[in-house]
Computed example of a mutant assay.
Amino acid sequence: MFDLRRLRLLHELSTRGTLTAVAEALSYSPSTVSQQLSQLEREAGVPLLRPDGRRVRLTAQGEALAAHAARMLAADERARAELERMRPSLSPVRIAVMQSAAHGIIPGALSLLAAREPDLRLEVVELAPEEGLFELAAYGFDLVVAEQYPGHTREHRPGLVRRILGHDAIRLALPHGDTARELGQLDDRAWVMEPPGTAAREWATQQCRAAGFEPDVRFELTDLTAHARLVAAGHAVGMIPDLVHGGEPAGLRLAELPGRPRRDVFTAVRSGSAERPALTVVQQALRDAFDAASPSA
Score class of each variant (00 low, 15 high):
Phe2Ala: 07
Asp3Lys: 08
Leu4Phe: 02
Leu4Lys: 03
Leu4Gln: 09
Arg5Gln: 14
Leu7Gly: 06
Leu9Glu: 01
Leu10Asp: 03
His11Leu: 03
Arg16Ser: 01
Thr18Met: 11
Thr18Tyr: 13
Leu19Val: 13
Thr20Ile: 04
Ala23Gly: 03
Glu24His: 14
Glu24Ile: 07
Ala25Gln: 06
Ala25Arg: 12
Ala25Val: 00
Tyr28Val: 01
Ser29Trp: 05
Ser31His: 09
Val33Met: 08
Ser34Leu: 13
Leu37Gln: 00
Glu41Met: 04
Arg42Trp: 11
Ala44Ser: 06
Gly45Ala: 09
Arg50Pro: 01
Pro51Glu: 03
Gly53Asn: 09
Val56Trp: 10
Leu58Lys: 07
Thr59Val: 02
Ala66Pro: 03
Ala70Val: 05
Ala70Glu: 15
Met72Lys: 13
Asp76Tyr: 10
Ala79Thr: 14
Ala81His: 08
Glu82Cys: 06
Glu84Trp: 04
Glu84Arg: 06
Pro88Lys: 08
Val93Ala: 12
Val93Pro: 12
Ile95Gly: 04
Val97Trp: 10
Met98Gln: 11
Gln99Arg: 13
His103Gly: 10
Ile105Ala: 10
Gly108Met: 05
Leu112Cys: 08
Arg116Val: 02
Val125Glu: 15
Ala128Val: 07
Glu131Arg: 15
Glu131Met: 11
Gly132Lys: 08
Leu133Met: 08
Leu136Cys: 07
Gly140Gln: 03
Phe141Cys: 02
Asp142Pro: 02
Val145His: 09
Ala146Asn: 04
His156Leu: 14
Arg157Asn: 01
Ile164Thr: 15
Gly166Pro: 12
His167Ile: 04
Ala169Ser: 14
Ala169Arg: 15
Arg171Cys: 12
Arg171His: 11
Ala173Pro: 02
Leu174Cys: 07
Pro175Met: 07
Gly177Asn: 05
Asp178Trp: 00
Thr179Gln: 12
Ala180Gly: 12
Arg181Thr: 14
Arg181Ser: 14
Gln185Met: 09
Leu186Arg: 08
Ala190Glu: 09
Pro196Tyr: 12
Pro196Arg: 12
Gly197Gln: 06
Gly197Met: 06
Thr198His: 13
Thr198Glu: 13
Ala199Met: 12
Ala200Glu: 08
Gln206Cys: 07
Ala210Ser: 09
Ala211Ile: 06
Phe213Cys: 01
Glu214Gln: 13
Glu214Pro: 03
Pro215Phe: 10
Asp216Val: 04
Phe219Cys: 04
Phe219Trp: 15
Leu221Trp: 05
Asp223Tyr: 08
Leu224Phe: 14
His227Gly: 07
Ala228Ile: 01
Leu230Pro: 05
Ala232Cys: 04
Met239Gln: 08
Leu243Tyr: 02
Val244Phe: 05
Pro249Gln: 00
Ala250Ser: 02
Gly251Phe: 01
Gly259Met: 02
Arg263Cys: 10
Arg263Asn: 08
Phe266Arg: 00
Ser273Met: 09
Ala274Val: 11
Pro277Lys: 06
Pro277Ser: 06
Pro277Met: 04
Leu279Cys: 04
Gln284Asn: 11
Leu286Gly: 03
Asp288Val: 02
Ser294Cys: 15
